[in-house]
Simulated assay, not measured.
Amino acid sequence: MGAGYTVMKFFFILLNVLFLLVSLGGIGVSIWMFVDPTIPLHFTQESRDYLITTVIILLASIILLIVSLLGIFGAGQEARKALVASFCLLLIIVVAEIAAGVWGYINRDSLEAHIRASVKHSVGEEYDKDDNVKALFDTIQTKLHCCGAERPMDWVRGKEFIMGVSSDITTYNVPESCCRTGIAPTECQGAVRDIPIGKEPNKSLVYDNGCYTMIYDKIKESCCIILIVGGVVLGIQVVGLILGLILACSVNRARRYKA
Rank of each mutant, 00 (worst) to 15 (best):
T6W: 10
V7Q: 12
L18N: 11
L18R: 02
S23K: 04
G25L: 15
F34A: 07
D36A: 00
P40W: 08
F43G: 00
Q45Y: 06
Q45R: 13
T53Y: 15
V55F: 13
I57C: 04
S68I: 07
L70Q: 11
E78G: 02
L83A: 02
L90A: 02
I92F: 08
A96S: 08
A100R: 00
V102N: 11
G104T: 15
D109Y: 07
H114K: 13
I115H: 07
G124D: 13
Y127I: 07
D128W: 05
D128Y: 04
F137E: 03
T139E: 15
K143T: 10
C146T: 05
M153Q: 10
W155T: 01
I162Y: 13
M163H: 12
S166H: 06
D168T: 12
T170I: 09
T171I: 09
V174G: 02
S177W: 05
T181P: 08
C188H: 06
R193H: 06
E200M: 14
P201T: 02
P201Y: 02
N209H: 10
G210N: 07
C211Y: 05
Y216N: 08
D217N: 12
I219L: 15
E221K: 08
C223S: 07
C224T: 08
I226K: 08
I228M: 09
V229T: 05
G230I: 05
V232D: 13
V232T: 09
I236G: 08
L241A: 02
L245F: 14
L245H: 10
L245D: 11
L247C: 09
A254Y: 13
R255E: 12
A259L: 11
A259K: 15
